[in-house]
């Protein structure tokens, strides 16, 4: 139905700011003395984000959304092994390059208030993001922008309310002027007006030509500001689609998991599906969503679908749902 919307080929083929290709991340764990076990929570992630664009990444928790952010920044724990390719501005991101770029060119708005130093006043923490020039001045400006009072700056993190803590996290990421901003659940638990404002600031950054990755479980937030939405499940990207596909009755969505996610929204029926993502030590041989899928066939049990791309859309499914119809 979206093809009806006139979309002239205005999608200029600029190079992506960030291009993640077939990323996998494994963790080594010790079990029973010196016996090692390997978990692979990210199996095949693909995502690309262009300058001037907000790419929202939504999906079940544990689908690898946060790990992707941490992999891009190079801040995974030391027992992690990363395969696949992460390209930033056309060049592969090596650990050395990540260390040089993070906090400058690539900034993170983290998921948890645990990322704040619990023993440092928040105004000082925010100033750490400025490596040259007038740290105090920049901090004051960014506090003003996010409606944080001077008094709030003298707080320790535990004294901040959930909403204030969130604004401090956004402020500390934005202060360095990064060209790629990865916001990992920047708005949970915030008042709708504050959510709107925070998301508005992310949209603003994209409109200034920066690339913004918004990692969120909140499809409504994604719909508000994103250009495209990537849906993750069990460490794979199952679908990437323009925001328009998520509007209306959801039947433009092609992957059964995307459809289930849409139907689980409180405003769309609040309908859960049973089970959970497959355990990492017992992954299905075929499609990772097959055990919970509405529409799986025998074929889905045997083989893993690969990503099918068309322009800036992607779907990874052997039996994608038809537009306008509930079933295949």
């Amino acid at each position: 139905m979206n093809d009806a919307i006139a979309r002239p080929d205005s999608e200029r083929e600029t190079d992506p700011m960030l291009d993640v290709r077939n990323l996998s991340v494994s963790f080594m764990q010790y079990a029973f003395g010196l016996h090692q076990r390997v978990f692979t929570p990210i199996i095949g992630l693909d995502a690309e984000v262009y300058p001037g664009e907000v790419l929202a990444i939504v999906g079940s928790s544990g689908s690898g959304k946060s790990l992707l952010a941490h992999a891009v920044l190079g801040i995974l724990p030391s027992n992690a092994r990363v395969r696949g390719e992460i390209v930033f501005r056309g060049e592969t991101l090596s650990p050395e390059r990540q260390a040089a770029l993070r906090g400058r060119e690539i900034a993170l708005v983290p998921q948890s208030v645990n990322f704040l130093d619990p023993l440092m006043h928040v105004d000082k923490q925010v100033r750490l993001g400025v490596r040259n020039g007038r740290a105090e001045q920049s901090q004051r400006e960014v506090f003003e922008r996010y409606h944080l009072s001077e008094k709030a700056g003298r707080f320790f993190p535990f004294q901040l309310s959930g909403g204030m803590a969130r604004r401090v996290l956004v402020a500390s990421a934005v202060i360095a002027g990064a060209s790629l901003v990865i916001a990992d659940e920047p708005t949970p638990g915030l008042h709708p007006e504050v959510v709107k404002e925070t998301l508005g600031h992310l949209r603003e950054l994209a409109d200034e030509g920066k690339a913004v990755v918004l990692i969120t479980h909140d499809i409504d937030a994604a719909l508000d500001i994103a250009d495209r939405i990537a849906v993750f499940y069990a460490g794979t990207t199952v679908e990437i689609a323009p925001v328009a596909d998520f509007l209306g009755d959801g039947t433009a969505l092609k992957h059964p998991y995307t459809r289930a996610l849409w139907e689980a929204l409180p405003s769309n029926g609040f309908k859960p599906i049973a089970g959970s993502q497959p355990p990492l030590d017992a992954l299905p041989e075929g499609c990772l969503f097959e055990p919970r899928c509405c529409c799986a066939t025998g074929e889905c049990k045997d083989s893993r679908p690969s990503a099918r791309r068309r322009r800036r859309r992607m779907v990874r499914c052997l039996n994608p749902l038809d537009a306008g119809r509930g079933e295949v």
Binding site: E185, H217, A264, P266, F270, K271, P272, A274
Partner: peptide, 12 residues
């Protein structure tokens, strides 16, 4: 608040 829609519907 921190969860995806499917898990949210499941817990509730």
């Amino acid at each position: 608040t921190m969860l995806d829609a499917v898990t949210q519907a499941q817990l509730w």
